[in-house]
Design a protein around this nucleic acid. Sequence first.
DNA 1: CGTCGATGTTGACAATGCCCACATGCCTCC
DNA 2: GGAGGCATGTGGGCATTGTCAACATCGACG
Lengths: 189, 189
Amino acid sequence: MSTSTRDQPYHHGELRQVLLEAAEALLRRDGAGRLSLREVARAAGVSHNAPYRHFPTRETLLAALATDGFRRLAAALRAGQGAAHGPAALVPLGRAYLRFADSNPALYRLMFSDGPRKSDHPALAEAAHAAFAPLAEALPERGAAVGAWALVHGLAELLRDGQISADLMGPALAEAVIGRYAGQGRQAR
Amino acid sequence: MSTSTRDQPYHHGELRQVLLEAAEALLRRDGAGRLSLREVARAAGVSHNAPYRHFPTRETLLAALATDGFRRLAAALRAGQGAAHGPAALVPLGRAYLRFADSNPALYRLMFSDGPRKSDHPALAEAAHAAFAPLAEALPERGAAVGAWALVHGLAELLRDGQISADLMGPALAEAVIGRYAGQGRQAR
DNA sequence: CGTCGATGTTGACAATGCCCACATGCCTCC
DNA sequence: GGAGGCATGTGGGCATTGTCAACATCGACG
């Protein structure tokens, strides 16, 4: 809470966490491309080299941010799913998913598009995979689950950068689309 | 065709096009994030500042690349659609779409994820919008078209970065998912 | 034939990612 | 309880980058 702990005890103690928070703020402001390690360090009030004690590389920082994002997404999905099970859960899951993407556009973009390759960061890959679990549980059939994942992810991305021209944008339509898919999923064994 | 016009006539003549081609090669190799204007210039055999006579900014170069990508995508879709019309065109369209994304992963990523914001580059925005046209014609109902767009785009992205774990990846599944969606689209009024 | 504008070139500057050597201070082990 | 070790943080430095400014070159047009 203290805006400036006067006597920086040289060893910060929570630098890693502070760096991540500062980085996320800058991510929100500038996007992943313009996020600079040195500016993160400045924001955290440490030397330009301090981050290297916690992240071997700029990309590692971004990967950590994205990993955290996937954990939060998974939590949001579980929270949004509520009591629903099976195909009926698709709509609330989709809604929670889209809300997450809409609330954290820069982070979402980092997680799926802008960010480091998952193959280079095992923890990231695993977190990303884990976020898929709620959907896989709701729709036991693989094809249906993948389709739903793709549909919702595609909607999120198209909405995010206004790819869908403004006249037909909006969460309402998105939800209708998901609803329709859910209905079909139910009847298509 | 000439690999090196010996006497570079100072005024290159086709620099813009050459720069774009060099840039796309580097894009393929390194991704948009690591693409450096100076390296593009080097690859084109001109000074590090020559590109600025054609692109006011690095981002502008990327936007031009992405714009071209959308034009090519639109062409690929029209070519892939063949004679099919209406909902029946969905499967061939989806196939063409996925093939494009699979053949040009870096470019695809630039177009949708990595690249400049469409709102900052009108030509880009328009090309992106135009690429949507074939789909909109095939599925006259807005919701269905948006859903299909999202579904296919989502599949492309998930496939691209192996988000769908390897065990269920592959174009075959993707096509099945699209086929199912197409079937549902046909029966949903 | 001269000049003018588009296109390229050279030079410079600040910022950045990352490397190296050094400083600091807590923790452990005799 | 003192000495050494190790994680953490600092400062300086280097190559690279995007962009700006000044100058060079050349074809077109009077």
